[in-house]
Amino acid sequence: METSAAPAKFSVNVPASSSAITPGTASTLIEIENLDFYYDSKQALFDINLKLDDRRVTAFIGPSGCGKSTLLRCLNRMNDLIDGAHIKRGSLKIRGVDLHRKDVDAIELRKRVGMVFQKSNPFPKSIYENITYGLRIQGVNNKARLDEVVEKSLRGAALWDEVKDRLHESGLSLSGGQQQRLCIARTIAVEPEVILMDEPCSALDPIATAKVEELIHELKKQFTIIIVTHSMQQAARCSDKTAFFYMGKLIEYDDTRTIFMNPGNPQTEAYVSGRFG
């Protein structure tokens, strides 16, 4: 699963045009068009138009309550689980498939679009059970296959060396950073195409954060990653593109470097320079 044509990091650093929303050189994976999203009668997202690249890291930034997490949760339809949450207009497409098409199954979707949460949430089962959970519920029970996936996933999450001798201990016995990487390993075990990360480092100390960020760099070779973050440094460090949201609207979307060095919108500039948020 080696990527052959991955462009160098930050290679595309010159804005191609004055328009904020520009497809990069990579192929487009996710298309969001005219999305209006509501919690009951309260509108949370206003007319979002966004094209996200395949096998890139895209960061969603913005102050609390700006709708970035909401948009993220739209992408694997986790919002279906919230009472009253609904899309009023617009569409989300992954590889051209509308996520709300009638024959689309949210369960199948979530197998292909994984998610890592703000607070690491390993199940109170063994590390092994945690990783294999996703496969077991799909009916995979072949021991050899499971063993293989466990090793591969843990290696993929850079956790293998730390836990290989205690695979049958509880996932809760790990440290905070390890727990979060376990959750990432759990997610990649089901081989999704996209990994959504909802502020994955907000509860971690700087060292653990650095490890997760390193991991993100590795992962983007295989996965498309969308990360919601509060930390602008994190967005700058590990994303290729950045989208800035404010009050439920997409204000600016561009290459990360552009957003941070040369933002096209005064609001973006005020935010990234730390004047509010």
Binding site: M1, E2, T3, S4, I94, R95, V97, L99, R101, D103, V104, D105, I107, E108, L109, R112, E193
Partner: peptide, 12 residues
Amino acid sequence: PTIRPFVIEKAR
């Protein structure tokens, strides 16, 4: 070749 078809439809 590295991309699996993105099948998210399922008839239950």
